[in-house]
């Protein structure tokens, strides 16, 4: 299957690959896995005192579309508030990366991962 140029770009030069300490107070971690393809995605956000995401990293095992979806999402959430980050929809990711229908679920994984990361952070703070 042919990947779009944007997917290839993120796949070959993934942005923000890495990890934060998941026990740190200002870090939220979201993990999600897709059993059908065996993909595992970990997305982490670092949140400042004003509730703005100052940094985001990811680590994904999976196909090019899963890697590109998480890479793109880490770029998008930086500088956003938690609510703004939550509002990002998988359809926007799929559209930006021109994902074919069979790869839409990769963008769903990314959306699930950011929501889980925000939830994790909120839970730590509550």
């Amino acid at each position: 299957m042919a990947y779009s140029e944007k997917v290839l770009d993120h796949y070959e030069n993934p942005r923000n690959v890495g990890s934060f300490g998941k026990d740190e107070n200002n870090v939220g971690t979201g993990m999600v896995g897709a059993p059908a393809c065996g993909d595992v995605m970990k997305l982490q956000i670092k949140v400042d005192e004003e509730g703005v995401i100052e940094d985001a990293v990811f680590k994904t095992y999976g196909c090019g579309s899963a890697i590109a979806s998480s890479s793109l999402l880490t770029e998008w959430v930086k500088g956003k508030t938690l609510d703004q980050a939550r509002a990002i929809k998988n359809t926007a990711i799929a559209e930006e990366l021109a994902l074919p229908p069979v790869k839409i679920h990769c963008s769903v994984l990314a959306e699930d991962a950011i929501n889980a990361a925000v939830d994790d952070y909120m839970q730590k703070r509550s």
């Binding site: 999600v32 059993p35 970990k42």
Partner: peptide, 20 residues
């Protein structure tokens, strides 16, 4: 359909990632 399933069990997924 398995295609639409996801799991969020962080401990399990961490193990899977380490295995990979």
């Amino acid at each position: 359909t398995m295609d639409n399933e996801t799991t969020m069990d962080a401990a399990f997924l961490m193990e899977q990632m380490e295995m990979r």
